[in-house]
Measured scan of single mutants.
Amino acid sequence: MIFPGATVRVTNVDDTYYRFEGLVQRVSDGKAAVLFENGNWDKLVTFRLSELEAVK
């Protein structure tokens, strides 16, 4: 189960963010908004829950 605050990895091989890890900001309607941070940039991207896996 994916909840806000969880760290997730993108599993969709066709996505630009494949294998990126980010922090879930919100979850609704089968989608999750994931925040990616890297140095001087932040990006908030929405994914279907089926495209994400929780990082242990």
Rank of each mutant, 00 (worst) to 15 (best):
K56C: 12
S28V: 11
V34D: 00
F20H: 11
K43A: 13
F3W: 09
D15H: 15
D42F: 15
G39Q: 09
N12L: 07
D29E: 10
L52N: 00
Y17L: 08
R19Q: 13
K43F: 12
V24K: 00
T7L: 14
F20I: 07
F36I: 08
F20R: 14
R19H: 10
K56I: 13
D42Q: 15
Q25F: 11
T46G: 04
L23C: 09
L49M: 07
K56R: 11
Y18N: 03
V24D: 00
L35G: 03
G5M: 04
G30I: 03
A6E: 07
M1E: 12
L35H: 07
K43W: 11
K31L: 13
P4V: 13
E37S: 15
P4F: 06
V10L: 02
D42C: 15
L44D: 03
T46N: 08
F36S: 00
R9C: 07
F3K: 10
R19G: 15
T46L: 12
W41K: 10
S50L: 06
V10Y: 01
D42H: 15
A32D: 00
R48P: 12
L35V: 06
R48S: 12
K43D: 09
A33W: 15
Y18I: 01
G39S: 09
K56D: 13
D42Y: 15
A32Q: 01
L49F: 09
G30H: 05
V27W: 02
N12C: 06
S50K: 05
V10C: 05
V8P: 00
E21H: 09
D15A: 12
R26D: 11
N38H: 13
D14E: 11
D42T: 15
V55M: 06
E21S: 08
P4Y: 06
R48K: 13
V10T: 02
W41L: 10
V45D: 02
Q25D: 04
F36N: 00
P4E: 08
R19W: 08
T46S: 09
V13I: 11
V24Q: 00
D14A: 12
A32R: 01
E53P: 01
M1L: 12
L23N: 05
N40G: 12
V10W: 02
N12K: 13
D14N: 14
T11F: 04
N38F: 15
M1I: 09
V24F: 02
E51D: 15
V27G: 00
G22C: 03
N38L: 14
G30C: 07
Y18T: 02
R9A: 04
E21W: 08
V24M: 01
Q25K: 11
V34P: 01
S28G: 10
N40R: 11
D42I: 15
G39D: 10
Q25A: 09
L35Q: 06
F20P: 00
L23S: 07
G22R: 01
V27R: 02
M1R: 12
G39Y: 08
T46V: 13
K43T: 12
A6C: 13
N38G: 11
